[in-house]
Amino acid sequence: MIIKKINLYAIRLPLKQPFIISYHTYEDMPSIILEMETDEGIIGYGEAVADEHVTGETWESTYQLLKHTLAPKLIGMSPFNIEKIHEMMDLTVYQCPAAKAAVDIACYDVLGKKVKQPVYQLLGGRYHEEFQLTHVLSITEPDRMAEEAARMIGEGFQSFKMKVGTEIGMDIERIKKVRERIGMEVPIRVDVNQGWKNSSQTLRALCHLKELNIDWLEQPVSADDVDGMVRIKSMTDIPLMIDEGLKGIREMREIIAKQAADKVNIKLMKSGGIYPAVKLAHMAEMAGMECQVGSMVESSIASAAGYHVAFSKKVITSVELTGPIKFSKDVGDLKYDVPYIRLTEKAGLGVEVDKGILEELTGFKSFIE
């Protein structure tokens, strides 16, 4: 079986409400959908959601890289040869993990459909039966965040991730208001998205968070400041998670060597897809570190890919892939059972793509064969 044709769709996924984090406000989510067709007529789907603030890729650059550089080289290759495909991509272009993730995910979707098995069966089999979903609170006024948290509890959610990373005093007020509103027992995770910049600022903020029962604090300092994470970890008993500071194997080696975090957030868009994400999970397991699989707010396609990785690995103990819940219109049909996610036994990613919606959301497209 060989890859015969690649179709690319540059789409914008409409959000129900703006998604606000420390470094950007998203009115919608730009995404590239990759449709891979083999000589046997099997079609697989991949996705790239670029984030210029994290990996340096943009929606436009990712589309052009796939169209002109990577996709033409895939024609005639076997989707079974995942290792060779990643080697080809790595030799062709440095980094650009979101573009590579689109190719990788589509290959796994094809392989699962070929052998009539869900992708998690190709990764070691199913370990988890379900994961609890965490509702993500984007940055707004403290009272509004507290009100949203209370409303989401009414809708079945049992844990929250708070986006902060603006002025520290206002961030502390946000966290306190949410904690007061939902009580001390509901889990709260705080994601700073690099917004507190350095370890000194973070330690100043942590003085006010000691008594608020925070599950963990995520990426408070700049992505490359691993030593800052080490300093914070040595001076607080609130668990630390690293996100933007972890992309691939090089960063994971440094994080492990310096014991810079208690937990790592693996994202397919940062690591380059399913295959390298699994490698990172294995490295973390050998170092005794827990993992989460997160996302760049992706459609059902890439969200399902992340779930297949998470469901197959014991070391992955939490997930944050709620993009499809945030969209008013999605290209796929990944099913959520709030407050849980339970994957089906459908072949491949287990996602049916609605070509009508895909075409509707497409701004521009290309076909390579």
Rank of each mutant, 00 (worst) to 15 (best):
residue 124 G to S: 04
residue 125 G to S: 06
residue 126 R to S: 05
residue 127 Y to D: 04
residue 127 Y to T: 01
residue 128 H to A: 13
residue 128 H to C: 08
residue 128 H to S: 07
residue 129 E to D: 14
residue 133 L to N: 00
residue 134 T to R: 06
residue 134 T to D: 04
residue 141 E to P: 06
residue 143 D to P: 01
residue 143 D to M: 12
residue 143 D to A: 13
residue 143 D to Q: 13
residue 143 D to T: 06
residue 144 R to Q: 15
residue 145 M to C: 10
residue 146 A to K: 00
residue 147 E to M: 10
residue 148 E to M: 11
residue 149 A to N: 08
residue 150 A to H: 10
residue 152 M to A: 07
residue 153 I to K: 09
residue 154 G to V: 09
residue 154 G to R: 11
residue 156 G to R: 10
residue 156 G to K: 12
residue 157 F to V: 09
residue 158 Q to D: 02
residue 159 S to V: 09
residue 161 K to F: 11
residue 163 K to H: 09
residue 169 G to M: 06
residue 169 G to Y: 06
residue 170 M to C: 08
residue 172 I to G: 11
residue 172 I to Q: 10
residue 174 R to H: 10
residue 177 K to I: 00
residue 177 K to D: 01
residue 178 V to A: 09
residue 182 I to M: 03
residue 182 I to F: 05
residue 183 G to Q: 03
residue 184 M to N: 14
residue 185 E to A: 11
residue 186 V to F: 02
residue 187 P to E: 04
residue 188 I to Y: 01
residue 189 R to L: 10
residue 189 R to E: 07
residue 191 D to G: 10
residue 191 D to Y: 05
residue 192 V to A: 15
residue 192 V to Y: 01
residue 192 V to G: 05
residue 194 Q to I: 01
residue 194 Q to E: 14
residue 195 G to Y: 00
residue 195 G to R: 03
residue 196 W to E: 00
residue 196 W to A: 03
residue 197 K to P: 01
residue 197 K to F: 13
residue 198 N to G: 04
residue 198 N to D: 15
residue 200 S to G: 12
residue 200 S to E: 15
residue 201 Q to P: 02
residue 202 T to H: 09
residue 202 T to M: 08
residue 204 R to S: 14
residue 204 R to D: 12
residue 205 A to H: 09
residue 205 A to T: 03
residue 206 L to F: 07
residue 207 C to W: 10
residue 210 K to L: 08
residue 211 E to L: 09
residue 212 L to K: 04
residue 213 N to C: 11
residue 213 N to F: 08
residue 214 I to W: 04
residue 218 E to H: 08
residue 218 E to F: 03
residue 218 E to R: 09
residue 220 P to V: 00
residue 222 S to G: 12
residue 223 A to F: 02
residue 223 A to P: 00
residue 223 A to V: 01
residue 227 D to A: 11
residue 229 M to E: 06
residue 230 V to E: 08
residue 232 I to T: 04
residue 232 I to S: 04
residue 233 K to R: 15
residue 233 K to T: 08
residue 234 S to M: 14
residue 237 D to P: 01
residue 238 I to L: 06
residue 240 L to N: 03
residue 242 I to E: 00
residue 243 D to W: 01
residue 244 E to N: 04
residue 244 E to I: 02
residue 244 E to A: 06
residue 245 G to A: 07
residue 245 G to Q: 02
residue 246 L to A: 03
residue 246 L to W: 00
residue 248 G to T: 12
residue 248 G to A: 10
residue 253 R to N: 13
residue 259 Q to H: 14
residue 259 Q to G: 13
residue 263 K to I: 15
residue 263 K to P: 01
residue 264 V to Q: 00
